[in-house]
Design a binder for these strands. Structure first.
Length: 347
DNA sequence: AAAACGTGGCA
DNA sequence: TTGCCAAGTTT
């Protein structure tokens, strides 16, 4: 047997982490864990996995749930399209697959939110089918092991890595092989401070030989961060305040937030008073009070946020119809972005 | 193909 | 502070 594969599999047997979704072959649980762990670290995702398993024990329950309940459970985890697609995929299985979880790569790929990686993960972990799981860990591990300096964020280079994995996986148990490759990337061949001194395949590592470990893998794209100025309004009326549902596309779709006015530069009282009709139709005199500012950092955006307060004695007329009246205890039923939660928790 | 999509941790 | 990264997918 290939000495590299032998070393990795032996190491995995001795060093694997005991993760909740590793002790099952249930495709429903595998799928749930894989979606939760997309672009998300194990420490962050685990509690969400437990929450979802507690609330939904099968596909049907998930399909029949309200999207708002699913988003609420997902609150704080980010990339909320995953939660919306989780719901859609469950309904897809009920409607198009007769309620039976798809058991092959091609059908798995039809599920919303399931791409190459996740389809391969479910196919191999649930059904032991030979599809390599090429995630960030495996990209890094392979790039170093074979000293490959092709940018891993360019789709056209993907086949180079897939082909290597297919060859290595030949004759192995796909479930075991994929788990071992990802675990190596996560535990030994880490982005920073890789543990080359205890790596079971250090003798075969081309990057270690060429002293390029720290330079691999190569990424070609760099993210450009857009700065946005958001002004949120805590509109007090009748012992409560208002939340609006974010519609359309873009960030935080279908989550709730305080009524918002976005400005091109930092919002001032004068600017906001002149634009308040974007939210309210009230003709009566009103005033706005600055409360707090916050900065919220996302991958592609830096949000400069100001929170303002408006007190009303007569019921407001909103321009936006998707508005709900709530209060400081009841609002916790709504899924809100972390930013909004952070502010409301201060009150 | 490139850009958008969240949040938290670490150096 | 800034930049990078995490069990990627969608448009």
């Amino acid at each position: 047997m290939n000495q590299i594969v032998l070393g990795i599999l032996y190491w995995y047997q001795k060093n694997l982490r005991n993760l909740p979704w590793r002790s099952t072959n249930d495709p429903f649980k595998i799928w749930l864990s894989e979606v939760i762990l997309q672009q998300t670290q194990v420490v962050q995702g685990t509690v969400y996995y437990e929450k979802f398993i507690e609330n939904f024990s099968n596909i049907k329950q998930l399909a029949n749930a309200e999207e708002e309940q699913i988003l609420k459970l997902w609150q704080g985890l980010g990339y909320y399209s995953r939660a919306r697609n989780l719901h859609k995929a469950a309904q897809h299985i009920i409607n198009n697959f007769n309620g039976v979880f798809p058991n092959n790569y091609k059908d798995l790929l039809k599920l919303p939110g399931v791409g190459d990686y996740t389809a391969s993960a479910i196919a191999s972990f649930a059904y032991n089918l030979p599809h390599p799981t090429l995630d960030g860990n495996v990209y890094r591990f392979i790039a170093r092991l074979y000293n490959i300096n092709l940018p891993i964020d360019e789709p056209r280079n993907k086949s180079v890595f897939i082909n290597i994995l297919m060859e290595l996986m030949e004759g192995q148990e796909p479930r075991q092989f994929n788990n071992a490759m990802m675990e190596m990337g996560a535990i030994i061949c880490k982005p920073q401070n890789p543990q080359c001194n205890i790596c079971p395949v250090a003798d075969y590592c081309e990057a270690l030989k060429n002293n390029t470990v720290e330079n691999l893998p190569v990424k070609s794209k760099k993210v450009k961060v857009q700065i946005r100025h958001l002004n949120y309004f805590f509109i007090e009326y009748n012992n409560g305040f208002y939340l609006e549902k974010r519609m359309g596309s873009g960030i935080w779709q279908n989550l709730f937030q305080l009524p918002l006015i976005e400005t091109l530069s930092e919002g001032t009282k004068e600017i906001l008073l002149s634009q308040i009709n974007l939210i309210l139709n009230n003709k009566s005199t009103m005033d706005i009070h600055f409360e707090k500012d916050m900065r919220h950092i996302l991958t592609h955006q830096r949000l400069e946020v100001k929170f303002w307060k408006i007190q009303l004695n007569i019921e407001p007329e909103f321009t936006n119809k998707k508005m709900v009246h709530t209060n400081l205890s009841e609002y916790k039923n709504y899924a809100v972005p972390k930013l909004i939660e952070n502010y409301l928790l201060l009150l």
